[in-house]
Design a protein around this nucleic acid. Structure first.
Lengths: 228, 228, 228, 228
DNA sequence: AATGAATGAGGGTTCATTCAT
DNA sequence: GATGAATGAACCCTCATTCAT
């Protein structure tokens, strides 16, 4: 019974059309399965057997690649946090419009490419489990938060330099800008996930209005404010 | 580690008689210990025996006062959060100033009496573990979120009724107002708790400025905006 | 909550109109409560606190009179097995009708005065728990089964002596006669108690028909048999 | 006591490797151990760890094969009782003799293959604990009692259809026929198990004579009755 | 490398029993 | 004597981890 369930999950003896890489891909498949489950259930409630089953391997194999559930968790976080910033940085390096437009674009990209995707689960995961995994938290701080803040900081400094923004407490502004995004991501993966519509919120609308509000406060010549 | 910890928690060298008759004090001591541990480790990772040990009693005694870990948690929420709404509601019932002042005062009270205290850890816990404990999420929604939103809603409606605010999408405004508070609390209990000063932020200043921004958008005759 | 429940069970502070004997009656009241509960729930599932509550005393008091739950159980059984046989023996000593009538009367008395009453719970109790309490079983054998069998034996011997019955294997006949009674009692307290009407049985009808069948087999001049 | 018992049960001096690979044998060994213990101590008093120990495995292994103590019990019932009905039904489907012979044969089979075996302890257990485990009682009612009664009912109906039996109150007759069997089993596992020979009874003889008595009452042309 | 049967340390909860008052 | 708060040994069950194959 439990035997066939595991077999079913991994597609029994089908010849895996697009997975001929098999062996080398193992750790990746495990990390992928683990990401899904950790995001969905959190660290404690995710059972290692379920991760293995979803990756199509046996429980023993999981421990062949990762010495413990905790190390698996750390590997999942490390695996999924990286690289994207290089690409985005470049995009913004070559951005040519006004800085308010740049900021609008930046937040929209953030939401579309991260917030709205499965990857936002990692943000939720980190924030939820940070206290139980301090080294993960430190790692995340270095690898994600710092680069992200740097990007925002550069945008804001560009605006000030070009005379579009008033002089700003930059750290503070960075913080104010990221807050709604983080908040949205947390809600999406917690209360909204169990009792949808506790928060009757359209993310796009919320982000857009928050950006305009921030810009209102930062711009030298504020645009007219829309109703909240 | 766990061996000596229990002993230490109980106050090894205290000369108290083994069976102190303290029926009245017990529930409070247990709730206090439980709050600490729930905030520190989350709901799932907090073991009931550890709560008992920290309160200086045996495992069995805990279940003498609270029929289950879940009920213990609910009691913690009532003791530290929802039980205090009545009092706060009254405070606002009799508030006589302008509605913008009322809103400023409300958020300051929220931060001072909840956000800045241990109890704010509960908010973080709920958001972190809601998906795994739907009963608890539902309880919290009813007992905390709904009343809190009602309070905010009443304030906003007062502002509209008195002609201080423009007509508002109230649900949306309630949401926008709570977001910075929730965000602040999340950070305090996750990333900030492991590596303080990730966010070089003064909560009071952040909240104050967010309120002004919101008021800017809501008021009929906006006050001049300070720099972000 | 649990405090008031116990208080309610024992009638709080009512002046106990018909229980002025109080102290001397304690053990009896405890045994009485325990009988009810043991019959209803069996030994393992009966909680000593509930016995105490039903008797109107505290948990501690129970252990003042009986050193353990097991001793309480034994005392309950001993207390309730006795005496009745003397009375019945006398009744039958002076019976003047035919022996078949005597047997019919005997079984009817057995059912009416024991089987149909709360006391039949003891029979069920003993049979259910005999293996876990061998000394109880021995005690019951001596105090109840032996006298009861003696009574039946005397009736049968009277029948043979008076030429009403054929020569009988008396032990065997005693057994055949008691079986339906015991069976009825067991059913009443087990399967019938949870899913009534598993056994579409009217006890009176069943006993009567069983007696007639037995008599049919034992009598010198059998009466015509009714349909089963 | 319990320390050395577990060791003893496992076969202390057996030179087997600590992890014998015996997946096929396990369930059977566990069911065997469980039957012994359920019969000996009842359902509530049987601890799952002890079952595991008697089967020579650890606590966890038991739950690898049976998801709960209750399911273990159900499996024991299926293995030893209800799983065999199919075979017996077939036997009776093809029975070609007279219906009285069929009934005689049926009860003899019942006694030989169930009553006289360890499995009869389950019947006693059910009757003893039905009230405390309504789920189990319902299961047993469905899985055992109903099919058994159906079998008896079919035999009786055959007799009536073939003109061998008088028209019968079938439910009632089913009941009358099973009663002596149940009674015998109860005694065997309760009083007789502690002090054998309380009832100086040969089961075969008792059953045979009870059948004849019943037949006497049911048959169109009764055979002459033997002395009781 | 891969498996999956087996382990055993807990985790939440219950309840007979104790003992300071 | 009586109380009932407190204890702690069990109990059922889970699951990360191990290891013989």
């Amino acid at each position: 019974m439990s035997i066939s369930k595991a077999a079913a999950d991994r597609g029994v003896d089908a010849p895996q059309p697009r997975r001929e890489r098999r062996k080398e891909a193992r750790p990746g498949e495990l990390l992928d399965a683990a990401l899904d489950l950790f995001v969905e259930k959190g660290f404690a409630a995710t059972r290692s057997e379920e991760v293995a089953a979803r990756a199509g391997v046996s429980k023993g194999t999981l421990f062949l690649y990762f010495p413990s559930k905790e190390e698996l968790f750390k590997a999942v976080v490390r695996e999924n946090i990286s690289g994207r910033f290089a690409e985005w940085n470049e995009e913004f390096q070559t951005f040519e419009g006004s800085t308010p437009d740049m900021l609008r674009y930046c937040l929209q990209v953030w939401w579309d490419r991260l917030g709205a995707t499965r990857a936002s689960g990692i943000t939720k995961l980190i924030i939820s489990e940070a206290r139980n995994f301090p080294d993960i938290a430190a790692f995340y701080q270095q690898e994600v938060i710092a680069p992200a803040h740097d990007l925002l900081r550069r945008i804001l400094e560009r605006g000030v330099a070009r005379g579009e923004f008033r002089p700003l407490d930059i750290d503070y502004a960075v913080f104010s800008i990221s807050a709604p995004m983080i908040f949205l991501i947390m809600m999406k993966h917690s209360l909204d996930a169990c009792a949808p519509r506790n928060y009757p919120l359209d993310p796009g609308r919320y982000i857009a209005s928050q950006v305009e509000i921030m810009l209102q406060g930062m711009c030298v010549r504020p645009a007219p404010l829309e109703p909240a």
